[in-house]
Amino acid sequence: MSDDHRLGHRERLKERFRKGGANALAEYELLELALMLAIPRRDVKPLAKTLLAEFGNYAEVISAPPERLKEISGVGDNVVTTLKIVEASSQKLAQSKVLEKPVLSNWQALINYCSSEMAYKKNEQFRVLFLDRKNRLIADVKMQEGTIDHTPVYPREIIKKALELGSTAIILVHNHPSGDPTPSREDIEMTKKIMEAGKQLGVILHDHLIISKGGHSSFKSLDLI
């Protein structure tokens, strides 16, 4: 692609984005815009399409581990840094909509936040959202991280942390890297143990969310708590 044609293409893409936002662009075009920041003097459309073909979609690309991204020809430190900035920005935006706000009345924002943080993790991660008396989020703590399908969880440690933070209610969140958010028998049994431990010390379990790239499930909606 000639320099003039490349510059014209970039400007047309930017103009469409300015007028219509992300909905005006295909996924590869949105990824192109990000890659333009990292590679200012090269046609990045082929690289954008290669990344999408390799990882599946835009979210998978920006959340891919740096070492996996670098396996792709044309991806260097600048590209990795730019993609990780995009990922961190999306997480910070989602977090700002739930931090220190009543989460039970803004449930979709909470799901969006948890999904941005955990849906594309390659290993299972167990987090606890600690709430105050007004059900505002005061802390999001990663309690454990495990393998692709198992994370050890210790109910006493969770309740101990709640008491340290002055939290009176909690929401459990963990991810299923498999993509299937269906609760396992182990998930259900572990949740019951945490709920019972909390009851004894005045810490309410509001819900347990399972997050995956295939969607999410809620123990409360499933009548499991």
Results as ranks from 00 to 15, higher is better:
residue 166 G to D: 05
residue 181 P to T: 10
residue 181 P to S: 09
residue 162 A to T: 05
residue 134 K to C: 11
residue 152 P to I: 08
residue 90 S to M: 12
residue 120 Y to N: 08
residue 180 D to S: 09
residue 106 N to Y: 01
residue 153 V to I: 14
residue 103 V to C: 05
residue 182 T to Q: 09
residue 139 A to Q: 05
residue 107 W to I: 15
residue 179 G to K: 10
residue 174 H to R: 04
residue 137 L to D: 07
residue 129 L to Y: 04
residue 178 S to E: 03
residue 87 E to H: 12
residue 153 V to A: 07
residue 109 A to Q: 12
residue 138 I to A: 01
residue 87 E to K: 13
residue 173 V to T: 10
residue 176 H to S: 03
residue 166 G to F: 09
residue 102 P to G: 07
residue 175 N to L: 07
residue 96 S to W: 09
residue 113 Y to P: 01
residue 124 E to P: 09
residue 145 E to S: 12
residue 127 R to D: 14
residue 112 N to C: 02
residue 160 K to S: 13
residue 88 A to N: 08
residue 152 P to A: 06
residue 150 H to A: 14
residue 131 L to G: 08
residue 179 G to S: 06
residue 114 C to H: 01
residue 100 E to V: 06
residue 91 Q to S: 00
residue 93 L to Q: 12
residue 121 K to V: 00
residue 145 E to L: 07
residue 87 E to L: 14
residue 135 N to I: 02
residue 126 F to Y: 14
residue 109 A to F: 07
residue 100 E to Y: 09
residue 160 K to N: 11
residue 107 W to Q: 11
residue 132 D to V: 11
residue 175 N to F: 05
residue 157 E to M: 14
residue 108 Q to H: 11
residue 117 E to C: 04
residue 180 D to Q: 10
residue 106 N to S: 07
residue 163 L to E: 15
residue 105 S to T: 15
residue 105 S to Y: 09
residue 112 N to M: 04
residue 177 P to G: 02
residue 154 Y to Q: 13
residue 120 Y to R: 11
residue 134 K to V: 13
residue 134 K to E: 15
residue 154 Y to H: 13
residue 100 E to T: 08
residue 183 P to I: 06
residue 182 T to G: 02
residue 145 E to C: 02
residue 104 L to Q: 08
residue 115 S to G: 05
residue 177 P to E: 05
residue 135 N to M: 10
residue 108 Q to P: 04
residue 154 Y to F: 15
residue 167 S to A: 15
residue 144 Q to N: 14
residue 98 V to Q: 05
residue 140 D to W: 04
residue 141 V to F: 14
residue 93 L to E: 13
residue 125 Q to N: 14
